[in-house]
Design a protein around this nucleic acid. Structure first.
Length: 261
DNA sequence: ATGGTAGCAAAGCTA
């Protein structure tokens, strides 16, 4: 069972890429972020014709998340249950083929110390509360998404940025993501590619559109798949489809995937 | 170096 997460940066603008990637990569489950459209505007027919069930939770112009699956989608939840006051579409959850999956778009945070940064930290707090509940059920759980944090120095093209007061890299953000993982998740990609080994170096999932970041491989690993123990026991393989970032008019993020036995 | 590019939507906001 292959489960992937991808921040597509507008499902409308990226539909040709999404279709090409689905055909080439054939994920069983795709967790999408930043669909940037209302739920009704999702290209359901196009994706359903490719053999997927779709559940979307969108909003106008910004944010928005979706789950695609070759298996039926059951028990769909839109919005973080522990963050009822949130007005932005950043979380959707469903059970598919016996695995409870979530597609998560953590706020970017803009600048460390800003109001948007406080919102990011509050979102992490709500995620932690929901994780406490979710992990208590002892189910296979895969939380995929754009967490907008590079948790360790090895997740940055320049390790010196780690802990610096800049967005994606700060001590506060790293603590928030590491604390979430410590509640009982495993970082799927790091499990397969330890940062201490050669294959674990230079694994990035996002490259800024500006300043030729991709061509210079100035990337960060901010998109993650977090697995409960019942999922990580079944972890077989993992990877990042970085080549999609080299396609014409790409998303600034690349798909991250795992397979479960 | 406070730039640089992309998407939405129609000027500025968000990333």
């Amino acid at each position: 069972m292959k489960i992937a997460t991808w921040n597509v940066n507008s499902v409308g603008a990226r539909l040709p890429h999404l279709m090409r990637w689905i055909q080439e990569d054939a994920p069983d489950v795709a967790l999408l972020q930043e669909i940037k459209c209302v739920s009704e505007a999702f290209p359901y027919e196009t994706i359903e014709d490719m053999g997927y069930n779709v559940a979307a939770f969108g909003q106008k112009s910004y944010n928005g998340v979706a789950i695609l699956s070759k298996f039926p989608l059951e028990d769909v939840t839109r919005g973080l249950p522990t963050f009822a006051q949130d007005t932005q579409a950043r979380y959707i959850e469903a059970v598919t083929n016996g695995v409870r999956v979530a597609s998560i778009y953590v706020p970017n945070g803009s600048e460390v110390g800003s109001d948007k940064f406080s919102y990011k930290m509050a979102f992490y707090g709500a995620l932690g509360d929901h994780a406490t509940q979710s992990l208590s059920y002892g189910e296979p759980l895969v939380w995929g998404g754009d967490y907008n944090v590079a948790p360790y120095a090895q997740d940055m093209h320049d390790p010196a940025l780690s802990g610096e007061p800049r967005i994606l890299c700060s001590v506060e953000e790293q603590r928030a993501l590491r604390t979430l993982i410590s509640q009982g998740f495993c970082d799927g990609l790091r499990q397969v590619f330890p940062a201490s080994q050669e294959a674990g170096k230079g694994l990035f999932s996002w490259w800024d559109y500006r300043a030729g970041s991709f061509n210079r491989n100035k990337g960060f690993r901010i998109d993650h798949l977090l697995l409960s123990p019942q999922a990580s026991d079944r972890l077989e393989a993992a990877g990042i489809d970085a080549h999609t970032r080299g396609w014409e008019r790409p998303s600034d993020h690349a798909p991250v995937w795992i397979t479960l036995v």
